[in-house]
């Protein structure tokens, strides 16, 4: 590992150039997922491209229509932000429940989304709130961003700069945490947005996904009772030592119901 290189670019353009020049390099944000992955032998990057010096990627801007969170903004900063608490309280609550205090003090929204951990919390918010992921090249819609297990629509070397969340009419997130890691065994984010009701699930499949049958039911009646009697197929869902696919499938409408209660 000591053959690794480390770069601390002072501009986004320099970071992009470094990334383009070395396909085996990894962008480093807070490092809360990448460093444990390296210790487990799952990753062995040739170099880190640390975004720590790019102050323009940190911070939160909010107006009546949207909340924009810089990619290098920590979970703790989102959780404590009066702007986020006022505009989208469910997003502040989600950030306050990620990992533990130490992880929230280092981990970033950009890092979480680029990593696309199947049990991460932020992907559920991004999908349910129909957020836009801004990069150094383009603006990516939430739908289609999460492609699979640790896989996103980002091109090699593409860098997330900010995430723009439209302010919903109302929204709520409930997660059933795996008690040791506090990752979502299943997490369900329900939102009433300008483009309709959106229900996004994390922790249950290879990546975050929407659930049309729940969205349709809640579009007819936005109330907990609308989730009653809905059962979902477990075929593509995760099974591990913590829960079976059937259990996860069962939790989805249950948590959607709790989110609305």
């Amino acid at each position: 590992m000591s053959a690794m290189a480390y770069h601390r670019p002072s501009s986004l353009a320099e970071a992009a150039k470094l990334a383009a020049g070395d396909p085996d390099a990894r962008i480093l944000a807070g490092g809360q997922s990448i460093l444990p992955s390296m210790k487990l032998g799952l990753l062995a990057p040739s170099a880190f491209i640390d975004l720590a010096a790019l102050g323009e990627l940190r911070g939160i801007r909010a107006d009546r229509k949207s909340v924009t969170v810089g990619a290098m903004t920590t979970h703790a900063a989102v959780a404590a932000s009066p702007e986020v608490m006022a505009a989208i309280p469910s997003l502040a609550k989600l950030a306050a429940g990620i990992g533990d205090p130490q992880v929230r003090n280092r981990g970033t929204i950009g890092g979480s989304l680029a990593n696309s951990d199947p049990a991460a919390d932020y992907p559920a918010a991004v999908l349910a709130l129909n957020a836009t992921i801004r990069t150094n090249r383009r603006a990516l819609p939430a739908d289609g961003f999460f492609k699979g297990l640790f896989e996103t629509a980002l091109a090699p070397g593409e860098i997330i700069t900010a995430v723009e969340f439209p302010v919903p009419n109302t929204a709520s997130y409930v997660k059933f945490p795996q008690p040791a890691s506090r990752f979502a065994l299943v997490g369900v984010f329900v939102a009433q947005t300008s483009t309709g009701v959106r229900v996004a699930v994390t922790g249950a499949g290879p990546c975050a996904f929407r659930v049309k049958v729940l969205e349709d039911a809640l579009a007819r009646r936005y109330a907990p009772q609308a989730c009653e009697g809905i059962s979902l197929p477990s075929g593509d869902l995760n099974t591990d030592i913590h829960a079976s696919a059937e259990y996860r499938a069962h939790l989805i409408p249950v948590l959607a119901q709790r989110a609305l209660a």
């Binding site: 601390r8 480093l28 460093l35 444990p36 880190f48 703790a76 992880v103 280092r106």
Partner: peptide, 28 residues
């Protein structure tokens, strides 16, 4: 040494972080 137990917690900029899960290079 897996970012789970918190025994290695120190403050960086006044906030608690797990020192086994941060590179020194990040803290210039």
């Amino acid at each position: 040494d897996t970012s789970s137990c918190g025994a290695c917690t120190v403050h960086v900029g006044g906030r608690a972080v797990k020192s086994c899960n941060v590179l020194v290079a990040q803290l210039h």
